[in-house]
């Protein structure tokens, strides 16, 4: 994860620099009457300083005695899972969410959520198509009744607007 940490800290440093340049272009006012740019200027410096600190910390070789392993019996939330991780699922889920967001307005909530659920159920390891479709249809139906009909959430109906609207 070291390269990942270096890239991430570098990215935040770049974000901090852009943020600071934009803040310097805002009216800063005086200390007795601060303008909208003063607080962002301070925060920009804070981001740059901490990102630089993280970057240096990641790049410099760590002293062997410096960081002792945690002695607490409590595992952190990031403990590596036994058996290894399946990063592919994360990418699939992210792609699925992006697809859902893009299709929501034109296609409509009901079709989108049905497709979303079927694919999500399969991503999470359930392989049989028909039961997955049946489960997705039931959940989509319940969510339509609860959110659209009962709670009156104006979810876009898309191509089903004329049928359901």
């Amino acid at each position: 994860m070291k390269i990942g940490s270096i890239v991430f800290a570098g990215l935040i440093l770049a974000v901090g620099l852009v943020y600071e340049i934009m803040a310097l272009n805002m009216p800063r006012g005086r200390l007795s009457y601060p303008g909208p740019g003063l607080f962002p200027v301070i925060i920009g410096v804070f981001i740059i300083a901490t990102a630089l600190g993280c970057l240096i910390q990641e790049i410099l070789p760590r002293k062997k005695t410096g960081e002792s392993p945690p002695t607490s019996p409590v595992p952190t939330q990031d403990s590596a899972a036994p058996g290894g991780r399946n990063v592919r699922k994360t990418f699939q889920l992210m792609a699925l969410m992006i697809g859902y967001t893009l299709a929501l307005k034109p296609v409509g909530f009901l079709i989108c959520i049905l497709a979303f659920l079927v694919i999500a159920i399969r991503i999470f390891g359930y392989r049989r198509w028909f039961p997955a479709l049946a489960m997705a249809a039931v959940i989509a139906g319940i969510s339509y009744v609860s959110f659209v009909l009962w709670l009156k959430v104006p979810l876009p109906l898309g191509i089903l607007e004329e049928v359901l609207g």
Binding site: M97, I113, F116, A120, F124, G125, F147, L155
Partner: peptide
């Protein structure tokens, strides 16, 4: 409760909840 059922429902609630 199987994860393949629970997690898609959580995602669904997030997607609808944040839009609403």
């Amino acid at each position: 409760t199987p994860l393949y059922l629970l997690m898609p429902i959580v995602l669904l609630l997030c997607l609808i909840g944040v839009y609403s």
